[in-house]
């Protein structure tokens, strides 16, 4: 018998957003928390409502319940966790909003980032490489973090404005800025790795 291939291939870059594990509650993530869909949200309100919902549905509330109830509780609590995790993070929230507008942030054709941004990314990455090789350059690392922070704030600002306008062209701008934020986050993660290497 032919051996079964031991691996699978990713179907696409696109992420599977859960569409409400429980049949009669196929609501979008904003509806779960009774919030108006939009990029600008009240984080304290979101967090408060998240906790109230988990108090109701967490499987621990059904430790003495029937199997049926416990299965449902796991599904609903998982769904609420997914919704909360997505909405509390600006990049995830933006991706999800674009998804609701049927724009896939992972669509390769949409990737046309401006060369200036990409150049800056390359330079920052090079600077990071130098810090990694030369541990004396710790102050360089602080500068890199500051640059990353500034860049992130600017991009988030542009993103918020784009979502506030909401027309088709602005949504394309939003998509582009989500891509940028992903680059920025990846760079920050690498910088943090270098920081750990240096301090240990």
């Amino acid at each position: 018998m032919r051996k079964i291939p031991a691996v699978v291939v990713k179907a696409s870059r696109s992420k599977v957003f859960s569409d409400g594990a429980v049949s009669n509650s196929a609501r979008n993530f904003f509806e779960i928390f009774d919030l108006t869909p939009g990029f600008a949200i009240d984080l304290a309100l979101l967090t408060g409502r998240y906790r109230e919902l988990q108090r109701q549905v967490h499987p621990d509330k059904y430790a003495q319940g029937s199997d049926q109830e416990r299965r449902l509780a796991v599904q609903m609590a998982a769904n609420i966790n997914d919704a909360f995790r997505t909405l509390k993070d600006p990049v995830e929230r933006a991706s999800y909003l674009l998804h609701l507008h049927e724009i896939s942030v992972d669509d390769q054709s949409a990737r046309r980032l401006d060369p200036e941004f990409l150049l800056e990314q390359m330079e920052l990455r090079e600077a990071l490489g130098e810090v990694r090789n030369n541990r004396q350059a710790v102050h360089e690392l602080t500068k890199i973090f500051t640059t990353i922070d500034t860049l992130e704030q600017q991009t988030l600002g542009t993103l918020a404005e784009a979502f506030a306008r909401g027309d088709a062209a602005s949504l394309r701008t939003a998509n582009e800025n989500v891509q940028k934020l992903r680059f920025i986050n990846k760079l920050r993660a690498e910088a943090e790795e270098v920081e750990v290497q240096i301090s240990s």
Partner: peptide
């Protein structure tokens, strides 16, 4: 990731 969690991803065949 906060528990419980349920997450899916799509994959495909390569032959």
């Amino acid at each position: 990731t906060t528990l419980p969690v349920s997450r899916g991803q799509d994959f495909t065949t390569y032959k």
